[in-house]
Computed example of a mutant assay.
Amino acid sequence: MTAQLTAPATRTWQADPYVDALRAGQGPLFLRRRDGWLLPLDVERWCAGPDAADDTVLARCTGPVLDIGCGPGRLVAALAGLGHTALGVDVTPEAVDRTVRAGGSALCRSVFDPLPREGGWATVLLVDGNIGIGGDPAALLRRAAELTAPGGSLLVEVAAADVDERVEVHVEDGAGGRGAAFWWARLGARALDAKAEAAGWTRCDSWQTAGRHFSHLTR
């Protein structure tokens, strides 16, 4: 089930127009649902240094940190600069290359592939909407639990709205470029709590800053 869900997304994130946007360091870039609804993707923020909201995530990181779907690596590089052992995982070679160039460590790999230090990460990150990876948050939360050390933390960025949806989307650039369709998910805090509890997580904190919403889960 997981492989079927993640394979189309893997192909998408390795191809245009997402890679073109990463190389340029800017959008516009969107996720489009089949009904036409658009979700803007904040490529410029991803390719910049950590902002004030990111700083609140970094401040809650302890021990070795795994960033799932690290993108161009702003958090991984910042964590390395703070003295953390940090690793990014992303299926896009360009994202991994950018992370390494920024001073971080990263692997071009799916989160569902074998990874270093399984069961030993003190903090795992799912920010920038990455709880949606594969369109199956329950499976992703179970996988995160396998990767995290007992008593470890999972820091998740959630949607501001009270939403729980699994949708078919594709990436497009607003100028005619589009990628293949794949499954994605969006969760608000309440939906995350329900799925997290079933996967063995407990919410110990939540916060909002600069229009972004986060939850701190523990095993």
Rank of each mutant, 00 (worst) to 15 (best):
L5T: 03
L82S: 10
R98T: 00
A15K: 04
G104R: 12
H84A: 02
T92G: 12
R219Y: 11
A15D: 15
D55Y: 11
P50R: 14
L217M: 08
A9M: 12
A159W: 02
A161I: 09
T123N: 12
T209Q: 08
A180I: 09
C108M: 13
L107P: 02
V96Q: 08
T85P: 12
V156Y: 07
I133N: 00
V43N: 11
D54N: 07
D173G: 02
E118A: 15
I68N: 08
P114G: 10
I133L: 15
G129F: 03
E165Q: 14
L29Q: 00
A78M: 02
V76F: 02
P116T: 04
V43F: 08
V171F: 15
R212T: 09
E44S: 07
G174F: 05
L154H: 10
R45Y: 04
E118W: 07
G63L: 11
W207Y: 12
H84F: 07
Q14T: 10
G69Y: 03
A185K: 12
E168N: 09
S110H: 06
R101F: 01
Q208I: 10
G83I: 02
A3H: 02
A159V: 00
A122I: 01
W121G: 13
T202M: 12
C61I: 13
V127G: 02
G134N: 03
N130M: 05
W121A: 10
A138K: 01
G188K: 04
L115F: 09
A9I: 02
P137G: 06
K195A: 15
T6E: 12
R101I: 04
A48Y: 01
T148Y: 14
P40K: 00
L87A: 14
A77K: 04
F214H: 02
R117N: 12
R98F: 00
L5K: 00
A15S: 15
G152E: 06
A175D: 13
S105D: 13
L155A: 10
T99G: 03
D173C: 04
A185V: 07
G83S: 10
P116L: 11
P116E: 12
L58H: 13
G135V: 03
T6P: 01
R32P: 08
R45M: 08
P116G: 13
D193V: 06
G151H: 06
G134I: 09
R219F: 03
Q208S: 15
A78G: 07
Y18E: 07
A191K: 06
W121R: 15
V100E: 11
R142V: 07
H213L: 01
F112M: 08
Q4F: 04
E94M: 02
G103D: 07
Q208G: 12
T123V: 02
L217Q: 03
R32S: 11
T6I: 06
T218R: 15
L38P: 08
E118H: 09
D20H: 10
L79Q: 06
P40D: 05
P8C: 08
G176I: 15
